[in-house]
Design a protein around this nucleic acid. Structure first.
Ligand SMILES: [Zn+2]
Ligand SMILES: [Zn+2]
Ligand SMILES: [Zn+2]
Ligand SMILES: [Zn+2]
Lengths: 133, 133
DNA sequence: CTGCGCAATGTAATATCATTACATCCGTTT
DNA sequence: AAACGGATGTAATGATATTACATTGCGCAG
């Protein structure tokens, strides 16, 4: 159950490449459509690949969008807490970490006897480029 | 467009009461089922009421659950940033605010020219009670 | 080599969550 | 009364995700 991953399977590679090439988050069904030419036929093929990729930390799920993005920093394994800034106009997603936020939420958990498994931080709004336009 | 609200309509009252009586988050369709006896027949009746209640700040949406909860502090209008700790075992939700987290995410937004509209902070894990058991 | 176990895959069906489109009702304004 | 707007009722559809079961391919024990 380490954070490292061995070789990806064909389906996992196809899904990851699709996300990496995309210029924003994709829904599972959009991924499916883009992989029809590669033989994908059913949602489960996408969801199974995503499940593994999420486990490897190569892909993130955006809960407020029901969509997925390739990790922007796939080399820094085990980033503790990840935050996303999502532009509602252009769809661009900025992935960042904030140690203070992580520490504060950790402190709340400790004080309340809560054992955190996964933390979601998503900011919806408008990016600098879109505000300029 | 103020945060205050006038009288709630019948449907809004029914939906809010259902959420307030529940011991955890409810999906829109669960709310619908619980209101069949009151004449609810279609999802839209629930979604329309939720839309207003969300606007009034009387209800929150949990993005990672696709579910809704009554606000735990309905009297303090305009709470800036709200975080949720969600127990995956018992479903209990703890709603809290952290000024430091709000300030740090605000700082990131300022530095990156991002205009935040809505921020989601959700911690999934196990509550103290469930850990004890 | 053969048969076994296991992970990945293929396929269909179904469950769950959310919105669009259009008709109707009802209180307020003119 | 007629016009208007907000709330509601109803049906249909779209979008997201999971369950169930069959099949394939590969490493390895016998
Ligand atoms: Zn990442
Ligand atoms: Zn943008
Ligand atoms: Zn609240
Ligand atoms: Zn619990």
């Amino acid at each position: 159950m380490s954070a490292t991953h061995q070789e990806l399977t064909r389906n996992q590679t196809l899904v990851l490449d699709t996300l990496a090439k995309a210029d924003g988050p994709l829904s599972a069904y959009t991924i499916l459509d883009r992989l029809r030419a590669d033989g994908f036929r059913a949602p489960l093929q996408v969801y199974r690949a995503l499940e593994k990729l999420l486990g490897f930390g190569l892909v993130h799920r955006l809960e407020s969008l029901n969509a997925f993005v390739a990790c922007a920093h796939p080399h820094c394994h085990a980033h503790g807490l990840i935050a996303f800034a999502i532009c509602e106009d252009c769809g661009q997603v900025d992935e960042f970490s904030d140690e203070v936020v992580r520490e504060r939420l950790g402190a709340w958990s400790s004080q309340n006897g809560f054992k955190a498994e996964k933390t979601t931080v998503e900011i919806r709004g408008h990016c600098a480029s879109c505000l300029a336009a």
